[in-house]
């Protein structure tokens, strides 16, 4: 006794038919054991039988479009069936298994729905909103008002919900399960990392007198966003992770490149260099206080760059008619 399974593109079983003997004919015609409604399949396309060694094989019964193994592109006249990899005729995937096929052991049922992901999600939400509120409070220089807290917190909450919903819908479409909590966890972790990094960048720019931390902040933020997108994509299905990763990395590289170009153009248009944007309490200073002569030695070094630029600008002007 053998079973013939017609698979969907996502390898889910669409139909399963039992064949009493060891031989089955498959095709579009009504004289077959298994009828496949695919216009690219011949009236009699494949014959499944046993070879001399007793293995199940599939033979092309003289179709025009031929028979293929799984995603293969080489036309096969005869395939030894391994019960795992399906054969492809027309646009249809078929898997043939014997009745003696050993299925894996049963998965153990969970006692109850797990509560820890939800607990973590709630915890993360509270932490994220708390950090946002803290930052709002630290930046509060006018009389405190409810709206100064409520507006940003609601905006954050609403955008997280919208973002997670989109990914949940995508996940539902592609993997059949919304995985809302998992997607929420990913989004919240992303937001948490972003806000912590932003504070870290501001802190470094001020405390370490290292303005590159904020100047190149955008590259890190894009990277965090890309990582978040990758994990969301992983939730939509664990297959082809390399492809998804490559896609995300390409988009990331593109985004960083575009923003770098835009920023350098803005700089050459405005001529303004970005200096530190945020002062912080003096107690946070980590960098040593420089001696005045050291500072002015740096300043003297700037001159060479300015003069070089002037020479360059003059040369450019002269080159223009």
């Amino acid at each position: 006794m053998i079973w013939v399974e017609i698979l969907s593109r996502h390898r889910e079983v669409a139909a399963r038919l039992r064949i009493a003997g060891d031989e089955a004919c498959i095709g579009r015609g009504y004289d077959n054991d298994v009828i496949v409604d695919d216009p690219y399949v011949a009236a009699r396309h494949v014959r499944v039988c046993r070879d001399e060694a007793g293995r199940l094989i599939a033979e092309d019964a003289g179709s025009k479009n031929g028979m293929f193994l799984d995603h293969g592109i080489a036309r096969e006249a005869r395939i030894v069936l391994d019960a795992e990899r399906p054969i492809r005729i027309g646009h249809t995937y078929l898997r043939i298994r014997e009745a003696s096929y050993a299925v894996p052991g049963e998965r153990l049922a969970r006692a109850r729905t797990q509560t820890w992901p939800i607990t973590i999600a709630v915890g993360l939400s509270v932490v994220t909103l708390g950090i946002e509120a803290l930052f709002v409070w630290l930046a509060q220089t006018a009389e405190p008002r409810a709206s100064t807290y409520l507006t940003p917190l609601l905006i954050v909450a609403a955008s997280v919900l919208a973002w997670v919903s989109v990914w949940a819908v995508l996940s539902r479409i592609f993997s059949g399960r919304a995985r809302f909590v998992q997607n929420l966890l990913i989004a919240l972790s992303g937001i948490l990392v972003i806000s912590l990094y932003r504070e870290f960048a501001q802190f470094s720019a001020f405390a370490l007198a290292w303005p590159a931390a904020t100047n190149y902040e955008y590259a890190v933020l894009w990277s965090i966003l890309a990582a978040v997108c990758f994990f969301h994509l992983r939730e939509t299905g664990r297959s082809r992770l390399v492809l998804k990763g490559a896609f995300v990395v390409t988009l990331l590289a593109l985004a960083i490149a575009v923003q770098t170009v835009l920023r350098s153009e803005a700089l050459s248009d405005s001529g303004r260099q970005n200096t530190f944007r945020q002062l912080m309490p003096p107690m946070l200073r980590l960098a040593p206080v420089r001696d005045q002569s050291t500072f002015f030695a740096e300043i003297e070094r700037l001159k060479a760059g300015l003069d070089m630029e002037r020479t360059q600008a003059r040369a450019d002007d002269a080159a223009r008619p």
Binding site: A209, P211, L267, S268, D269, S270, G271, R272, Q273, T275, F276, R285, A287, P288, V289, R290, D291, Q292, F295, E298, I299, L302, G305, L306, E309, R310, A313
Partner: peptide
């Protein structure tokens, strides 16, 4: 400052004590 007359700005910042 306009770039018609000036080159782009260059800045340096640090903690300094006279």
């Amino acid at each position: 400052p306009s770039l018609k007359w000036h080159t782009t700005q260059r800045c340096h910042e640090d903690f300094v004590a006279a």
